[in-house]
Nucleic acid binder design. Structure first.
Lengths: 246, 246
DNA sequence: TTGCAGAACTTGTCTGAACAAGTTGACCCC
DNA sequence: GGGGTCAACTTGTTCAGACAAGTTCTGCAA
């Protein structure tokens, strides 16, 4: 099922995780790995390219590859889905819908979801927590073609992402995240159980399908004492960008 | 000098930028591009893989590649260097060193810079601004082997990154960024000219050389009304990760 | 012992070929 | 017109080989 180069990438990741290759040590040469797994050098290169993009190993022409880090970053699924993320950490995701309403799309919705102004979109306000303790207020707007499936979900469903995949086969493939900080307002203070004006980490994001069609956009506010985000970047692979206001 | 696949990737990026291929339209097939540029299919695949990783185009087996976005994200240089970033936006980076001091490395410095505890490291506190308006307080710790070069730089140098490259040939290649929100303290309030307790966006980062050797680590606090960060992610390429406190 | 030159090694780039697997559109039948 | 089937097209995966370019280590000479 899975491609051979993915199997090899996984094998290498696991070897790094169990410290068969320690941080700072050198990986075997491509030709050695190719012989070991019984594949061509090109296939090995596909595998190590994946690890390089993840920042696990460093690579320079002429020198052996070096292990840079051991803990591997989350999968896209864990980033996209609050519930998947919680489960991976061994905690339980909780959550409930506070308000839910159909509205005609405003200018902002129209731009982000690539829909005509006035299209019936679904606004949902959710509070989500870890083991019952609230850490996140989520204000999401769903595109019209998926909103019926979302509205049918029970209010305390722990994983909306999983539910949409089961019901409709929808897969989230791309995401754009804009991160800044805001002061906590009155409603958020009550929902999260923190003082007003305390700092919150805000993540505004748009998620799209594999074809590039926007599914939802959301304004998420995290308690900054509970959650942070990390980004790994390199000279070859640059996902993070700094932006000015406006 | 530059590899053929990079030239082709650049050509495609430019073509997308000048809307020769518009958002939503389909790219030519690999075989067509290969014939057009006079290279093999493998070389074309290397080029389009780069654009896919940048999120410019989407890709599914069997279907033509689709243009997803036109504006391309910043280079790593622009992310790493405040001055480079400002220049790219047509604004002037300003800045000054508020305090600078050699200290023996504490536990935290030792872990992040992979140096023995007690090594003489250089602490620098800088305020940086756009066109004279302060937007960022930067607390940076430099490893011992680079600190002499840093200490020799004049206090109001607009681009430390550029200066270090010119003087020592040092190139920053990898970066790990942890992002959260904090309330503004008394010192930061005065330096940035904002009210105490107003929310600041904090980015803690470690930058390393191509070989994976840590050069510096820094605690940067941005006025959240002036600067935000954006991250582009996909199912194949996931640089962003969510973390809990501790 | 030190420093330099060169050999051996390793990754980067590129080719051309073949087959697998998924998508799209045209065509035909009902 | 509607629906289903199939062929043509397109991307994904893999192979084997070749050369370029950079690094590392060895051994020799000063």
């Amino acid at each position: 099922m899975t491609a051979r180069h993915e199997e090899i990438a996984d094998a290498l990741r696991r070897a790094i995780d169990r410290e068969e290759y320690t941080v700072g040590s050198r990986l075997p040469a491509e030709t050695e790995l190719a012989a070991h797994y019984g594949v061509s050098r090109g296939t090995v290169r596909q595998a190590v390219a994946a690890l390089t993009a993840e920042g696990l190993i460093g690579s320079r022409q002429g020198a052996r590859r070096v292990v840079l880090a051991s803990r591997r970053s989350q999968s896209f699924g864990e980033l996209r889905s609050f519930a998947q993320w919680a489960r991976a950490m061994g905690r339980e995701a909780t959550g409930r819908v506070v308000a839910q309403e159909f509205r005609p799309a405003a200018q902002e919705d129209s731009v982000r979801l690539q829909l005509p102004v006035g299209t019936r979109v679904l606004h949902v306000l959710r509070v989500r927590g870890l083991d019952g303790e609230p850490v996140l207020v989520e204000r999401t707007v769903y595109a019209d073609w998926i909103s019926a499936a979302v509205a049918a979900i029970e209010p305390d469903c722990p994983s909306v992402t999983q539910r949409l995949y089961d019901d409709t086969g929808l897969v989230f493939a791309y995401g754009e995240h804009v991160i800044d900080a805001v002061a906590c307002g009155a409603q958020d203070a009550e929902l999260l159980g923190v003082r007003r004006t305390s700092p919150l980490l805000r993540v505004r994001r748009v998620t799209t399908t594999r074809e590039g069609r926007p599914v939802e956009w959301s304004d998420d506010r995290y308690r900054s004492d509970a959650v942070s985000f990390s980004v790994h970047n390199s000279i070859d692979n640059n996902a993070l960008a700094r932006k000015t206001a406006e």
